[in-house]
Every structure is written in structure tokens, then in C-alpha cells.
Design a protein around this nucleic acid. Structure first.
Lengths: 195, 195
DNA sequence: AGCATATCTGAACAGATGTTCAGATAGAAG
DNA sequence: CTTCTATCTGAACATCTGTTCAGATATGCT
């Protein structure tokens, strides 16, 4: 009757990651124990160590994979012709992608301080690549005279901060549809950088 | 020679709170132990319980006092005449006040999930009062035709999210002065809600 | 001077923490 | 059916957790 044993690597592995994502997002990395994660999966704590060398690596793996997924998804979009078009593309992509993976996104920017210095540096590099993509768009529009921002670096961070705010309140099936949300944000961002 | 004892309530009390603010902001509530806080103050862990009934109350007290301070400081500003003026005042106040207390602000929105439900509700009420102040400004400008936003509630959250982003990168003595930072953000926000 | 009180120490508590590992078990391979 | 191996259990480990409290100590008061 006891617990099932044997070969379940292909099943348990993903479930460990799913449980970790859900629990880390809900209570925070430091507040979640390996035993809680194991309990969610339906397994003893020791079994987790077949899938991660330690707790820190589990967190880091989740964050790194998420950032790489975001970058890969964004970079395979077909490049827009002009800056305005590219900015709209970025806004739409960011909102939709992030609302599809709220837990991963939440972890990726809430748990940075719980990474070891080396792991932190690696995540920051990936995040930086994403920010640079947006800054490149702003610079392009600035050069072409379509945009007018006092400082492209700050504008980049301001736009991303604004977009990230959507995750704090948006709930699927709420007052506004995804299309409406995207439109509202696009409207504000378009105007905020306009010449 | 040993540790000093006797009457130090007026000194130790604030130092406990300062240490807690600093450590919670740096590593997160769940990752900081009472012994670490005590060590920072130069006292044994048990002594902390002269100043807080428990760890949760310590966190809650810091967050509640911070939110009340923010509200009190904002509400004693003399009301601006028109909506545009009021928005500018809000932006300036928010940036300057928050950059003066980065740790408290950081805690106030990072540690919400570590509050008990009752404590969470109380903090949310205070936060809501602050957001409502901004939304009232946006509504005023919307009515007067100065502003044009698709949704005042979302615009409120978007503006605050954008402003909060300043704390993730601003460092005193950096590339830009406080005045410049305020100007850059005011420029973007003014345009983003403009008619 | 000595008394009273606020403050701190130091040890103790019950339980939780991340991690390890020998041994049990189930499915795959022959 | 047997053997092999990946997977999981269950117990153990050293250490850390928030919190309590009796006793020590210094300060303020008389």
C-alpha cells in the first residue's frame, strides 16, 4: 500500500519544478522548505535530491530557464520595421508572455536577493539582455525623431516597471480582457515616449 | 567588562527597528533570524522581546508606521489648484519621499505575503488610501479634459508602478541628480496621461 | 546609602531546517 | 523468471528557528 516506488523520473522531475514554482511564488523561497515541496509532489524530502543538487540550484534553475525562455520567445519574433511598431510589439509581447507565467515572473524578480552572487550575476546578465532590447528600440525612435525621451536608460526601466505592474493586479476573467489591457498600456506608453 | 545592562530602552528600541529594517530589506523577512537582528544591535536575542511581542509584530509595526508616515506627509501638502499641478506634486513627492526611505519602501511591498491575513488587510487599506489619492487626481484631470486615460484605475497603478521602479536603480551620487530624475519621470508621466 | 525597576544575559525548549544515505521497491531488460 | 538499475523511503545528522524565563546588573529615585 505504501508509497509507490520505481521509475518515475519523467513524471516527478517536472512536478518538483511545478511545485517549487507555485510555492516559491506564494510564500517566498526562504519561507518554503524542501519538505513542503516534497509534500506537494507526494514524495519524501530526500527524493527531491534526485532532481536538484540542492535548494539553491532549484531556485536558480527555475529563474535561469524562465529568463532564457523569455529571451528566446522574444528574439524569434520577426523584427518590426520602424521603432513605433517595434515598441508596440514589445509591449504586447511583454504583457502577454508575462501574464501567461505570472509565478515564474514573480519569482524572477522577487527572489534575486536569495541567489548566490555567481547565480545572481548570471540572471542579471539575462535580464540585461532583455532590457537592452527595449533600449535599442527607444534609441532607434529617438534617432528617427519619433520618440523624445530625456534618457533612454531611465525610460527603458520606467517602461518595464510600468509593464511589470500589470502582474500585481491582472486576473484572468476580470473586468478587462487581455486585448483591452494591452491597449490601455500601449496607449500610455506610446504617449509617454512620444516626441 | 561584559555586556552593558540597565536602562537603555530609549536607545535600544530604535536600534532594533533600524536593524530589522536594514536586514529585512537586504535578505527578506523569512531569511532573517531574531539572532541576526540582535547581533546587529549588540544584544542577545531574548532582549528583543522587550520591544516586540514577536517577529511578525516587528514586521507589521515597521510596515504600518511607514505607510502612515507616507500618508501623513502627503496629506499635509497644500492641495494644488488644478489636476496637472496636483499630478506634478504627487510625482515629486513620491520620488523624493521614497528615495529617502528605500529600505522601508522595499519592505512595504516585498513582504506583504509574510503578513498574517489581518495584518495584510490593514496594510492594504493604507496602501489603498495612497492609491486613491492619485486616482482622484487622474479623475479630476479626466473630467476637466486635461487628461485622457482609458481607465483611471489602471492608469493609477501604472503610474505608481513606474515611479516605484526608480528605487531599483537610483543611487545617491549617481549619474543623475534628484532634480533630473524627477524631471525625467514627470515628463514621461505627464505625456502618458495627456489628452 | 540602599531600594526599586527597567533592561539584558544565558540557557533552555520543542520543533523545523537542508542534506545524506543505506536499504527497500518497482519497472525494464534479458 | 531473474537481474539490474533508477527511484523512493525512512531515519538520522548537525544546526538553526522563535520564544520563554529565572537570575544578573546597572541605572534612577529617595
Amino acid at each position: 500500500m505504501a508509497r509507490t516506488q520505481g521509475s518515475h523520473s519523467g513524471i516527478t522531475g517536472p512536478r518538483v519544478r511545478e511545485a517549487a514554482v507555485s510555492l516559491f511564488a506564494q510564500h517566498g523561497y526562504a519561507a518554503v522548505s524542501m519538505r513542503q515541496i516534497a509534500g506537494e509532489v507526494g514524495v519524501q524530502a530526500g527524493a527531491l535530491y534526485n532532481y536538484t543538487p540542492d535548494k539553491q540550484s532549484l531556485l536558480f534553475g527555475l529563474m535561469r530557464d524562465h529568463m532564457q525562455d523569455v529571451l528566446a520567445a522574444y528574439e524569434q519574433l520577426e523584427p518590426a520595421k520602424d521603432a513605433q511598431e517595434a515598441l508596440r510589439q514589445f509591449v504586447g509581447f511583454h504583457i502577454r508572455y508575462h501574464l501567461q507565467r505570472p509565478d515564474e515572473v514573480f519569482i524572477a524578480y522577487m527572489e534575486l536577493r536569495n541567489l548566490t552572487p555567481e547565480n545572481f550575476a548570471e540572471i542579471e546578465t539575462l535580464r540585461r539582455r532583455y532590457e537592452d532590447a527595449l533600449e535599442a528600440i527607444l534609441c532607434r525612435g529617438q534617432d528617427s525623431g519619433q520618440f523624445s525621451v530625456a534618457d533612454t536608460k531611465i525610460a527603458t526601466l520606467a517602461v518595464i516597471a510600468m509593464l511589470n505592474g500589470v502582474m500585481t493586479w491582472y486576473r484572468a476573467g476580470g473586468r478587462l480582457s487581455l486585448d483591452e489591457v494591452e491597449l490601455v498600456y500601449w496607449d500610455m506608453i506610446r504617449k509617454s515616449v512620444a516626441a
